[in-house]
Nucleic acid binder design. Structure first.
Lengths: 209, 209
DNA sequence: CGTACTTTTGAATCGCATCAAATCTGGTGG
DNA sequence: CCACCAGATTTGATGCGATTCAAAAGTACG
């Protein structure tokens, strides 16, 4: 399958620094909802990067329950596979999409030998950690309004946020039911706490009114 | 202040790979609850690593509210400062403790020039990302029991977990009030879902009884 | 011993999840 | 262009579970 590098770089700026030898080794793969791409215990042979659709890392618990360890719609999934000899989880698709497959050995070599690529990778990881820490703090807030405001403040610029996804997907990211998200947005709008014009949501400071 | 390297390595295995030149440059610093160590906008000059106590990254919102972006009890805080020219948040202490201060330039140099240290750092970041992703998924679960079981399955070994902190602190990590944690643990114990012997909490599979 | 903190249980309240249903939207095919 | 469909958006009513306030008992530390 051919790869649209411009689209991929749009999604993952890191790929701009991808060294040429690695670039030729990348494979593109489509997947369909319901498919299981890898199983727990398998030996990872590639770093996976989701371009569209949605993958879940799922662990099958002792009590028979499935537990989602990670869900990914855009970006690298199962980064831990880089360090470990076996997948800790199943990787399953919950929505049709495509992914890139970077051969693991070549990926490691590139990280060792190509400083700009390595720097980009380090930077990406550091950002990821920051984003995820903020997300965890947000999910610990137990009111819908606080989570929404925390999100705008974290992910937005100067209190203004451009929503890159449907509100339903946003609700899932915030750990809220979509109904509550809609209701709370309306309330905050009515109270004058924020402006909501389609994809642009802005906080209105109480001081500056 | 003298540094107890054995204790520090216990907390952060990464430090075992710390190159000697960097080791001599590390400074130890005590802090007290309430103290503000750095302010938003300041230029970071060091990587900070919490050994004890608790630090918060706090952002002061447009609406005057304080929002916690990250809390850290053991490990590196504000890793993003490595890449950026200014702190995005205030760094405040909420409990007395100590931290290590790694001069930023030397830290960057060590990452560039010392492969084992760099590999250890990459590994640590990858693990961190995995842990945090799991934590986010966990916090999206909206029942106390599910969060507890998810935690045991994620952070434990074979369904057995050794609790390294007070239950109250665990409750905070799970995003629950401590009362609900106690109550839910009791219920799960009574239902035979898990065993709870002081610091050792184990899931009991329904099948294997 | 006394103090501070954790652990534990109880009762009341509030907010979110859930079920239901209507409207709106974008995209497909006739 | 219009009919149609799937999915997103929006509003309402209800129940449950987590938070909160309160208070007691246990525990560690000086």
């Amino acid at each position: 399958m051919n790869i649209d590098w411009n689209a991929a770089i749009e999604i993952l700026p890191l790929l701009r620094e991808l060294p040429d030898p690695l670039r030729t080794l990348v494979q593109s793969q489509g997947f369909r909802a319901g498919e299981t791409l890898h199983r727990q215990g398998e030996r990872p042979t590639a770093m996976l990067c989701v371009l569209s659709g949605e993958l879940h890392l799922v662990r099958h618990g002792l009590d028979g329950h499935e537990r989602v360890m990670q869900r990914m719609r855009r970006g690298f999934i199962a980064e831990a596979s880089m360090e470990s000899a076996a997948y800790h989880c199943d990787i399953m698709a919950v929505a049709d999409g495509t992914l890139l497959r970077f051969p693991l050995a070549d990926f490691r070599t590139a990280l060792e030998d190509v400083p700009p690529f390595r720097r980009a990778w380090l930077q990406r990881l550091a950002r990821e950690v920051r984003t995820l820490r903020a997300q965890s703090e947000r999910l610990r807030l137990n009111s819908a309004a606080e989570r929404i405001l925390h999100f705008i403040e974290t992910e937005g610029e100067e209190g203004v946020m451009l929503l890159q996804q449907t509100r339903k997907a946003w609700a899932a990211e915030l750990g809220l039911s979509h109904e509550v998200l809609y209701r709370t947005l309306r309330r905050l709008r009515e109270e004058g706490v924020l402006q909501d014009e389609g994809g642009r949501i802005a906080m209105r400071s109480k001081v500056g009114g």
